[in-house]
Design a protein around this nucleic acid. Sequence first.
DNA 1: TCATTGATTTGCT
DNA 2: GCAAATCAATGAT
Length: 201
Amino acid sequence: MRPGPDPLGSPEDADRAFRAPRPAAWYGRPTVVVARELLGQLLVRRDAGGLRLGRIVETEAYVSGDRANHAFLGPTARNRSMFGPPGTLYVYRIHQVHCANVVTGFGEAVLLRSLEPLYGILEDPRGPGRLCRALAIGRRDDGTSVVDGAVRIARGPGPPPAIDRGVRVGIRRARHLPLRFALRGSPWVSRPGLGGRGRSR
DNA sequence: TCATTGATTTGCT
DNA sequence: GCAAATCAATGAT
């Protein structure tokens, strides 16, 4: 019997992830592919307070021609980061929280919706707003790169995970598009419908 | 300058 | 299940 993937709970794990980020070209692929493959990847934050590490368990894709996409009407002051190179962070504020996305292609991005805490995360990171709060992601991170910035993404351990797919959450337009992805069976997914402990029945 | 809107979260019924 | 909180971006006046 072999043990499963390493639990990755140590500061050394966080440091290793921070030093070995995915290259920019990894993000420059079709948005839906990146949204799926981001599941199981490591999200790591370094700041004056130290390191924080989590596993991405839920994402949403925002694609070209998608009316729910902030970039649908073209570049504006808010969304200009979405037109940066692959791997650019697009951080925006909605209501009283921030949400973080990773740019894939021109005007396309993946919303990071939920995280499994691995190291240094003291608050609940389930949901895009809580994820940003737990990692102290804010306006100053908008336009930075997950390849060489203070917030980075690195390869996760283990084989490609089983993935659930469904409709996106909380949007008004283009509700029918199945562009939400989650790690099957993960209790860290933000809302019922995908992941979680399965449907009660 | 004013009004509307929202890729959320929280608390109450 | 529903509404309120709360604020910056956006578009209209």
